[in-house]
Design a protein around this nucleic acid. Structure first.
Lengths: 193, 193
DNA sequence: GCGACAATAGCACGATCGGTCGGTCAGTCG
DNA sequence: CGACTGACCGACCGATCGTGCTATTGTCGC
């Protein structure tokens, strides 16, 4: 990796951390530059505009998300263990400082059309699809009731995750994670029974 | 209502609508002023600072929320009907242009300490408490299993609402509302069975 | 150790930010 | 009538925004 690429990665790491606390739109070129120990113009050598920076942040974070949350889960046995792994990995992911960027960005961008929002929509849809798809491996393994609806399951698991994000991060509820686990287990029970 | 008060209300209506699409922090005094057909200084006759404007927006929206979501539900019979009403009223509330402001503000402010965040935390906590409390009336009416956990129920219902907000508003999923209802019914089933 | 080129800094721009100022004008009260 | 008030405006403040251009530095093949 050349020096330029390394700097770019470092910038995106910092930017993604920053975005998690102030939002994608709350990022300022000046603050980010000083946070990354670079001049503003130094930043512009890597990103042509603020918007393309935001898209790059999403791409970068997405790559990490796949590597840390999705990919490891796929090494688990098909079916319920894999569903569990996906859920647990997400809990870990959301526990990083600032929580899950995609959650934060979702309500920020849901009314602001443009390439950034488009990218985010794609990633969120992919995520729900992944949840549904993994659930489907549980269907074909006979772990779950045959008439269970994978998309509905994804919808509900995502809700549990969102609730955990809110309760844990905004309300500082120390029980948020355990409440989320309880809710998740109830969902699994229902899919099985 | 004096002329000043009327203007103030009109400003807050406009502001709350604006905040729902660009976020509380995304509001700009200039844009809000022109949107409200007022000069910036005319605005500052009503709000001493941007921060106090933001707090006022939350207060104003909260008053509407109580009047349109919580209060009507409390006229329903105690127990399950009241829980249902609360849920349905929220779905209607979140269907207004821009959706629920509190949801949007939650992930925006979860990492930004200050009076605005403090106010939002209080309102969110109140909301979860309302959900739990209404569920409790169902317990004392014998509608639900005696060992059901009202706070856990509130956590899970809130998750369903958040998921509906995301799927409906970001992903434009036309099935979001019906998925939410299905999930909600499942929660009720579990509390009963 | 020199030339080439990538990487970064310096600096300045127009726009816009939140916020303040002096002042106008309709209405109220005595 | 005159004194006063609340509501509002246009102009303007210093700061900061995103974004370019140009100069300087660092790195590496030869």
């Amino acid at each position: 990796m050349s020096k330029g690429e390394a700097t770019r990665e470092a910038i995106l790491d910092t930017a993604s951390r920053l975005a998690r606390s102030v939002g994608l739109g709350g990022i300022t070129i000046g603050t980010l530059a000083s946070r990354a120990e670079l001049s503003k113009s130094g930043l512009y050598a890597h990103f042509r505009s603020k918007e393309s920076l935001q898209v790059s942040i999403l791409e970068h974070t997405r790559a990490r998300f796949v590597a840390e949350v999705v990919a490891p889960a796929l090494t688990e046995p098909r079916g319920e263990p894999r569903v569990r792994a996906l859920f647990e990995n997400w809990l870990t992911w959301d526990s990083q400082p600032g929580g899950c960027l995609f959650v934060a960005a979702s309500s920020e961008l849901d009314d602001q059309p443009g390439p950034v929002r488009d990218r985010l929509v794609r990633y969120q849809q992919d995520w729900l699809d992944s949840l549904a798809e993994v659930f489907r491996t549980g269907l074909s393994e006979g772990h779950f009731l045959a008439d269970a609806d994978p998309e509905q399951f994804a919808f509900e698991v995502d809700g549990v995750m969102l609730s955990r994000h809110l309760s844990g991060r905004l309300l500082d509820d120390p029980n948020a994670v355990s409440r989320a686990r309880t809710a998740f287990e109830a969902l699994l029970d229902r899919a099985r029974a």
